[in-house]
Simulated scan of single mutants.
Amino acid sequence: MSNSPTYNGNHSSRRFSGKGEQSIFLGAASSGKLHLLDKNHDNRIIWLLFAAPVMALLFMILPAIVELHGVGADIYRFIEPLIGIPLNFFILVSAEVFVDYSEHERKFLFTITEKGFCSFLFTIGAALYAQGAGMHSTAIIAKDKIQDLITENPNITSQFPAINSTLEYMETDLEHVAGYYIYATGAAIITWAHLLAYRRQRHDEISNVISFIAFFLGSFFYAVLLTSVAIEFPKGTLVGLIYVLALGVPLLAFMLKSGQLFSKGRRLVPQYYTLSYGLALIMIVIWVAVNGGFVDRRQAGWFDH
């Protein structure tokens, strides 16, 4: 009996390496209801990869530059996960593993399919992302209210010394440490889910100039996002440097082994993150060199409010 795989008309065409590992190639055929042959599918992934960091940067940088107060500012801070998580979710489910309607899905871990494990990983990341963002935003709201109270009643801190310790707890422990670290951990896990889902997927080269520019700018903005997060919290630049090296170096090795590091999007998502980590590494090193150490933006005197 032949060991060659067989497929019906609804299955994606796959190419197999000599080791028997499936190597997914988008553009070779259609899969189920989603026509992967259509170039628009790759373009959708590219524009999602562009939009996700841009939206996150808008919600992160504006409050750092402009002091936001009032109900509108509070709502603005809480909206970010409602936009960021769906954008990242759409990136995840655009992977071929989510649109392959094969009857016999390969088990990834015990009885869990690859699609199921990617979904589980993303869910954990999204939960941490939302919790961290919520904790961070809540701490800012509480901190601002306490500061307003102190401004209106300068003598209140001498009457109630615990107010200062409460303010420090809100600003340092909840906002700058717990909130940011939980938020950043969730974002990192979401990235891992993307890389896991797309690790075997190959695409046609990007032929459209606008799409290629969007792909490059998306990587650049994601690098800016990584750097912005790193400089936001204490020791964040050191943690950020370790993170981009710990994930970027193996990812670079993976791309070099694939021989498609410099291709025009043949390994779309892994290439995107490889480029982003490389750019983020350069940005963090420049920040450390310019500011004389692993300092955050407040310690460096940038937009200290």
Results as ranks from 00 to 15, higher is better:
residue 244 V to Q: 10
residue 215 F to W: 11
residue 21 E to A: 12
residue 117 F to W: 11
residue 226 L to C: 08
residue 278 G to V: 10
residue 156 I to P: 01
residue 261 L to C: 04
residue 141 I to Y: 00
residue 6 T to L: 06
residue 77 R to V: 00
residue 32 G to H: 07
residue 214 A to P: 09
residue 273 Y to I: 05
residue 82 L to I: 01
residue 229 V to S: 05
residue 289 A to P: 12
residue 138 T to V: 03
residue 178 A to V: 03
residue 196 L to T: 12
residue 32 G to C: 06
residue 32 G to M: 05
residue 292 G to K: 02
residue 176 H to K: 02
residue 249 V to R: 02
residue 48 L to V: 01
residue 133 A to P: 08
residue 71 V to E: 13
residue 209 V to C: 13
residue 48 L to S: 00
residue 5 P to H: 04
residue 298 R to K: 10
residue 296 D to N: 06
residue 109 L to V: 01
residue 16 F to Q: 15
residue 144 D to T: 00
residue 299 Q to V: 12
residue 36 L to V: 02
residue 191 T to R: 15
residue 298 R to P: 15
residue 40 N to P: 02
residue 130 A to Q: 03
residue 222 Y to T: 07
residue 125 G to V: 10
residue 261 L to T: 08
residue 40 N to E: 00
residue 290 V to H: 05
residue 173 D to N: 15
residue 233 F to N: 15
residue 119 S to K: 12
residue 118 C to M: 11
residue 133 A to K: 01
residue 260 Q to P: 09
residue 109 L to D: 00
residue 18 G to R: 04
residue 26 L to H: 08
residue 82 L to N: 09
residue 296 D to L: 01
residue 96 E to S: 14
residue 8 N to S: 10
residue 14 R to N: 15
residue 115 K to Q: 13
residue 85 I to H: 13
residue 81 P to C: 09
residue 181 Y to P: 15
residue 261 L to E: 01
residue 243 Y to Q: 14
residue 218 G to R: 08
residue 22 Q to S: 03
residue 242 I to S: 14
residue 141 I to P: 00
residue 284 I to W: 07
residue 79 I to Y: 10
residue 296 D to Q: 02
residue 122 F to P: 11
residue 108 F to S: 13
residue 92 L to Y: 05
residue 269 V to R: 08
residue 273 Y to S: 11
residue 175 E to M: 03
residue 295 V to N: 04
residue 127 A to Q: 07
residue 96 E to R: 14
residue 80 E to A: 15
residue 40 N to H: 00
residue 140 I to L: 07
residue 49 L to F: 01
residue 144 D to W: 00
residue 289 A to W: 05
residue 88 N to P: 06
residue 8 N to R: 11
residue 104 H to W: 04
residue 25 F to E: 14
residue 282 I to K: 08
residue 141 I to W: 00
residue 115 K to S: 09
residue 103 E to T: 09
residue 57 L to S: 03
residue 12 S to H: 14
residue 254 F to P: 12
residue 287 W to D: 14
residue 287 W to S: 13
residue 65 I to M: 11
residue 43 N to Y: 03
residue 139 A to L: 07
residue 159 Q to N: 13
residue 149 L to D: 09
residue 291 N to L: 03
